[in-house]
């Protein structure tokens, strides 16, 4: 389950969602806005059918491709303007054993950052904005 939200992420509730008696290990990853020359981060998501936040088909396929025996997994990505310290993304995953949970969690966040159509935009102090596109030269 992958959810987009405009509100602060409740990572405690997210973690509870993936807990299970079949899973001996739960890993939670939080991505946060770090100190970075006073930039604020704006995100835009491509929800292709309609441009309102919701589940994304492209992203849901992540779980199908994972190689680990995931019992449950949940991802929330926040959209909109975020300030220093805010949580932009949370990944929670449960598996029978801890090695699998760490590896699956790492794979889920790495893959999300490669394939899920969400972009950061940095807003600089001088009022300019810049989309972040890994691998592309700045305009």
């Amino acid at each position: 389950m992958i959810q987009l939200t405009n509100d602060p992420i409740d990572f405690t509730a997210l973690t509870e969602q993936v807990r299970s008696n079949a899973a001996g290990a739960v890993v939670l990853f939080l991505g946060t806005v770090r100190e970075f020359t006073h930039a604020r981060i704006e995100t835009q998501a491509a929800s292709l059918a309609e441009e309102t936040p919701g589940d994304m088909k492209l992203a849901v396929k992540l779980f199908a491709r994972a190689r680990w025996p995931i019992v449950k997994a949940a991802i929330v990505h926040r959209l909109g303007t975020m300030e220093l310290g805010d949580i932009s993304v949370a990944v929670a995953v449960s598996t029978p054993h801890r090695d699998q949970a760490f590896e699956a969690g790492r794979w889920l966040i790495d893959t999300l950052k490669e394939v899920v159509p969400i972009w950061k935009q940095e807003n600089w102090d001088d009022g300019t904005k810049e989309w972040i596109h890994p691998g592309l030269k700045k305009p």
């Binding site: 491509a46 394939v115 972009w119 596109h133």
Partner: peptide, 12 residues
């Protein structure tokens, strides 16, 4: 067909 184009993603 529904077609969308975008530059490399940077969420997370």
């Amino acid at each position: 067909l529904e077609v969308a184009c975008f530059p490399p993603v940077s969420g997370g």
